[in-house]
Simulated scan of single mutants.
Amino acid sequence: MDAVEAGQSFTVTRDGHQIGELIPLKRRRRFVPRAEFAAMSQGAPDISLETFRADQDATAAQETDDPYAR
C-alpha cells in the first residue's frame, strides 16, 4: 500500500491471468494560490452580471415536475 500511495501501480493476477489493477487515486488539489487563480482568470471572458442574474432567476422560477402527481 505504501508503494501505491507513492504512485506505483500493480496488476493483480490469479493463476497467471490478469484480473485487476491496483492504482493510486488521483488526488485533487483543494487549495489554489491566489496568484495562480489570478493568472488563470486573466484569460476568462467578461460576463454580464445582469444576464447572469436573469439566468439564475429564470432557473429558480422553474417549477419541478412532481413524479408522483397524476
Rank of each mutant, 00 (worst) to 15 (best):
M1A: 13
V4R: 03
E5R: 10
E5W: 02
G7C: 08
G7V: 07
G7A: 10
Q8E: 09
Q8Y: 11
Q8L: 11
S9G: 02
S9R: 05
S9F: 03
F10R: 02
F10L: 03
F10E: 08
T11P: 01
V12G: 04
V12E: 04
V12A: 14
V12D: 06
T13F: 11
R14C: 08
R14T: 14
D15C: 08
D15R: 10
G16M: 01
G16V: 01
H17A: 15
H17E: 14
H17I: 15
H17P: 00
H17L: 15
G20V: 07
G20T: 06
G20F: 14
E21S: 05
E21T: 02
L22V: 07
L22Y: 09
L22W: 08
I23G: 01
L25Y: 09
L25M: 04
K26S: 09
K26Q: 12
K26A: 10
R27H: 13
R27E: 14
R28N: 08
R29K: 13
R29D: 15
R30T: 12
F31C: 12
F31Q: 14
F31L: 14
V32W: 02
P33H: 06
P33W: 01
R34N: 05
R34L: 12
R34Y: 06
A35L: 08
A35Y: 01
E36G: 01
E36N: 04
E36V: 05
F37T: 01
F37Q: 00
F37K: 00
F37Y: 08
A38V: 06
Q42T: 01
Q42P: 00
A44W: 07
A44V: 02
P45Q: 03
P45E: 08
P45H: 03
P45L: 04
D46T: 03
D46N: 03
S48M: 07
S48I: 11
L49K: 02
L49F: 07
L49A: 05
L49I: 07
L49W: 04
L49G: 02
E50C: 02
E50M: 07
E50R: 07
E50N: 07
T51R: 15
F52C: 03
F52Q: 13
F52G: 02
R53S: 10
R53P: 00
A54G: 05
A54S: 14
D55P: 00
D55H: 13
D55L: 10
D55A: 12
D55E: 11
Q56P: 01
Q56L: 15
Q56C: 14
D57W: 01
D57N: 09
A58P: 00
T59W: 13
T59I: 02
T59V: 03
T59A: 09
A60R: 11
A61C: 06
A61M: 09
A61V: 03
Q62Y: 04
Q62I: 14
Q62L: 15
Q62S: 09
T64F: 13
T64S: 10
D65I: 05
D65A: 05
D65G: 03
D65H: 06
D65T: 11
D65K: 13
D66M: 13
D66Q: 10
D66G: 08
D66T: 12
D66E: 09
D66W: 02
P67Q: 07
A69Y: 11
R70N: 10
